[in-house]
């Protein structure tokens, strides 16, 4: 059962990773001419959540952060529309207005992000309060420091909303580490707001263990992860960064390589075709 789940997660990550590698190259070659926020390294969070939630047959409202390509892709956002968006086309998922950070998808209930860190939290809470629909809000560890995020946790808890706060904690705000910025943890803060909250790794199995709490009440998961590339643009901060994708591929051996290669071929061809059409 776990293996089947992990395989599904791996398939989703392989799509996201190969997509991001193509974006990386497109930025390098100047085919994309605005800031991009690559989610490579962090994909297992949205891939795990999308796999779990699909199994539960729930279609949540999704409020993503600026580093959101993997969220969009994992939950089934249209790949072509995202490529169009990154190329500035009107056919893009945000009609060429959203760039990398402000993408949306009506099909998967994913709402655009305005570019201010963490504003998605109060907006998601308001949407959840109004609709009472299951809602996921993705935050970074930096945006978790925004005062309106903290106020949102408090109000969501007070109103007992079916909302899931996911903090994709890569420990960095651009390159400033968490320990330089604060001496507290967001999961402890959430607990003080009388919410269930956990501090876990981005191992899909750990994420799955917490899924029994999803959408029954407000909960927060601070998920420790790693960003492989620069905060913005195409570059590498360190080649020693732990890569969850590699470790998952190892579990599956040759089958993992096959999943990767299949996704790579599909995504590479798509990018190549769409870049040629430009």
């Amino acid at each position: 059962m776990s293996k089947e789940y992990l395989k599904e997660v791996l398939k989703k990550i392989s799509i996201c990773r190969n997509f991001e590698l193509n974006v990386f190259n497109a930025v390098k070659k100047n085919n994309i001419k605005f800031p991009v926020y690559l989610s490579a390294g962090q994909e297992s969070i949205s891939a795990s959540l999308a796999t779990i939630i699909k199994k539960k047959k729930i279609k949540p409202l999704i409020f993503a952060q600026h580093r959101c390509h993997s969220t969009y892709l994992s939950f089934g956002g249209n790949i072509r529309k995202l490529i169009y968006e990154l190329l500035g086309s009107k056919k893009g998922c945000a009609y060429g207005m959203g760039g990398s950070a402000s993408i949306q998808s009506r099909e998967i209930n994913m709402f655009g992000h305005d570019g201010h860190m963490g504003t998605q939290a109060p907006i998601a809470v308001g949407a959840c309060f109004q609709s009472k629909k299951p809602t996921i809000v993705f935050l970074g560890d930096a945006s978790a420091e925004e005062d309106y995020v903290l106020a949102s946790l408090g109000w969501a808890s007070t109103k007992k909303l079916p909302i899931l706060f996911i903090v994709e904690d890569n420990n960095l705000s651009i390159l400033t580490e968490k320990k330089v910025r604060r001496n507290w943890d967001i999961h402890s803060v959430a607990k003080s707001f009388k919410m269930k909250a956990f501090n876990i790794s981005d191992n899909p199995l750990e994420i799955k263990k917490k899924s029994k709490y999803f959408f029954r009440e407000p909960i927060l998961l601070n998920i420790n992860t790693n960003r492989l590339f620069w905060h913005s643009g195409a570059g590498i901060d360190s080649d020693k960064t732990f890569d969850r994708y590699k470790s998952l591929r190892k579990i599956f051996g040759a089958q993992g390589n096959t999943i990767h290669n299949k996704a790579k071929e599909k995504i590479d061809i798509l990018w190549k075709k769409m870049l040629e059409r430009q």
């Binding site: 939290a121 109060p122 949407a127 109000w155």
Partner: peptide, 14 residues
């Protein structure tokens, strides 16, 4: 929390 209240209203409007 004034900073969040506007956001709650925006979410409801969505």
């Amino acid at each position: 929390a004034d900073v969040a209240g506007g956001g709650f209203a925006v979410g409801a409007a969505l």
